[in-house]
């Protein structure tokens, strides 16, 4: 197992804040919007340097999505920001009609996704957003795994023409991807090559997958670990190439099993190369209050659970 180390830990939302500040300096068409969550989205740097390109919408997410769509008419590249819950479920129809169906170049940037939002509880912990967004035609869906990758993804989506959903979060987690790694939309990243089992992880679960890979290696199992940062378009080639070799797979995500990454991988495998797939995610349930670590433990989104899933997948291999 390839060794992954880290020297620093940060939240992925801060990677977004750093990315949009850099975009402010390099792309005059980039504008940032928020619905009363500028601090939570780490927009302070952008606001300070580019006050005229920051648009405060107040607590009105539906309007923010519509204003964003309108801003693209005139060539602006709007980054609409709020918590993932309010950026998707609350405004699904606005995104559907005014952004996705209309093919507008809006970047929906969503923080505090998933269980790791923590103490605020289930009202704020959306676990369905990837499913909703990936079902929309024209929508690109991205879940970067750490600070560096979130920054790189933020910068990359400004150059892509079309609607994007970029999902990140609140907890402080290890920074293990290189700061200079270019972000390529739709291109899965190989983290460790191995013949025994494929582990496909996204977002915060990528670090857990690396930890799981180390534990498996101690038992003589060499897992192939792949970071699927883009849920849609899915890198089917990377997935199939890996599973054709290992003949079994695990998916891991901070999301409902319904509609998430595992769901997309299951479709890909069923259509092309049926093989056992164990899925780590939330089982048709809302979240609850607690610390992020407690919640990830309680809902089974940990390295240990990935290890167990990998072994089950290998046993089911035919």
């Amino acid at each position: 197992m390839k060794k992954y180390t880290y020297t620093d830990k940060k939240d992925t939302r801060s990677g977004f804040g750093a990315g949009i500040l850099e975009l402010g300096r390099t792309n005059p068409n980039v504008v940032a919007l928020t619905a009363d969550l500028a601090g939570s989205l780490k927009l302070e740097g952008f606001i300070k340097e580019f006050p005229d390109r920051f648009i405060q919408c107040g607590i009105s997410e539906a309007n923010m999505i519509g204003v964003s769509a309108g801003l693209t008419i005139g060539g602006k590249i709007p980054f609409a920001t709020t918590f993932a819950n309010f950026a998707t479920g609350r405004v699904y129809d606005q995104i559907r009609q005014s952004v996705a169906y209309s093919g507008k170049n809006v970047k929906i940037c969503a923080s505090h996704a998933g269980l790791t939002l923590g103490e605020d509880g289930a009202t704020h912990q959306i676990l369905e957003d990837l499913g909703m967004m990936k079902m929309l035609p024209n929508m690109t869906v991205i879940t970067p795994c750490d600070y560096n990758q979130t920054k790189a993804a933020t910068i990359a989506i400004a150059d892509y023409q079309g609607p994007v959903y970029l999902r990140f979060g609140r907890p402080v987690i290890p920074i293990f991807t290189p700061a200079d790694q270019k972000f390529e939309i739709g291109k899965a990243l190989m983290l460790n090559e191995g013949p025994d089992v494929s582990i496909f992880a996204t977002g915060h679960l990528v670090w857990e997958a690396i930890q799981a890979g180390e534990k498996l290696a101690e038992e003589g199992i060499e897992a192939e670990i792949i970071n699927i940062h883009t849920i849609k378009p899915l890198d089917e080639e990377a997935i199939l190439t890996s599973v054709r070799k290992t003949r079994c797979a695990v998916s891991a995500e901070e999301h409902q099993l319904n509609g998430g990454l595992g769901d997309s991988i299951a479709q890909t495998l069923a259509r092309n190369y049926p093989a056992p797939l164990e899925m780590i995610g939330v089982h048709d349930s809302f979240g609850e209050s607690g610390t992020p670590a407690q919640l990830m433990q309680k809902y089974g989104l940990t390295a240990d659970k990935i290890v167990e899933a990998a072994k089950r997948a290998m046993e089911r291999r035919v």
């Binding site: 769509a69 801003l71 606005q94």
Partner: peptide, 30 residues
């Protein structure tokens, strides 16, 4: 709808309540 590229139309409408927001955005862009 814009999906069929009909000249003259810049955003889809039909699901009500969304046009004023889009117009605000376009006015801001101007």
């Amino acid at each position: 709808a814009t999906a069929e590229h009909l000249p003259g139309i810049r955003i889809a409408s039909g699901s009500l309540g969304q046009g004023l927001s889009a117009a605000c955005g376009a006015a801001l862009a101007k």
